[in-house]
Amino acid sequence: MPTSLFDNRKSVIHRLNPVTKLVALLAIIVIVFAIPVWWVSAIVLVVVIVPAAVISGSGGRLLSLSLKILIPILLVLFIVQGLTFPGGETILWRWGVLKLTTEGLLFALGVGSRIIVLILASILLVLTTHPGQLMSALSEHGMSPKFAYIISSTLQLIPAFSDRANSILLAQQARGLSLKGSPFRRIKVMLPLLSPLVLGMFTDVEERSTAMEARAFGSPAKRTSLIPVPDTTLQRVLRWVFVALALGAIATPILMGIL
């Protein structure tokens, strides 16, 4: 199981301050959800996300990863909402209780375009940003170091945990544990896998916390950064521009009276 999708390259997008990218992602999400028409999402996709993906050089991985997530969602969305949308009136085709309606398809288009932007933009952030760097950048901006510890530590723990779970599974299978049978039986099978996993992993927590306390982990004092994350004035300005754009997007529909 991969712990991070980070795609290590040296593009401009990769070198941006992680906080700038995070603010941009949040602004994009706010814009497409605040002005809920499909062509706003399409503009954001063509003007922002596609160029950013091309510049970053991670476009190929972005496409393959997001298609895997998006295709099932979009397929289900269009089939379900196209055929059973509650507000559907203009019937294009019907078969029993199922009726294909224009309203349903438009609804699916609206929701689908937003999901596409949401998924593509977040995967692009994950592909171009090292989780560790994101954590240090956020800590510099005042996030509690406990969050940074928990997230970074989990990302390192997951592979160890996965290995352990696999070896327990193999050991139990060697003792004759069968994974086949009814769903209820298979849930029972989980228990002899889980107990040793949990016991094993929780036993070293005590020592770890003593070691952390000995290094003043619980101290409320402000930390300095070992490796400062580069930031520029331009990016500082950009972040405020993104915030302004997002606020503008929230105000637009109210001012235009389209709601």
Binding site: S153, T154, L157, I158, L169, M190, F202, E206, S209, M212
Partner: peptide
């Protein structure tokens, strides 16, 4: 601190078992 040290283990448990 003792609880903070335990949280990553619990999160990994959530994710690994969910995946398993």
């Amino acid at each position: 601190t003792a609880t903070v040290a335990m949280v990553p283990v619990a999160i990994a448990l959530n994710i690994v078992v969910g995946q398993l």
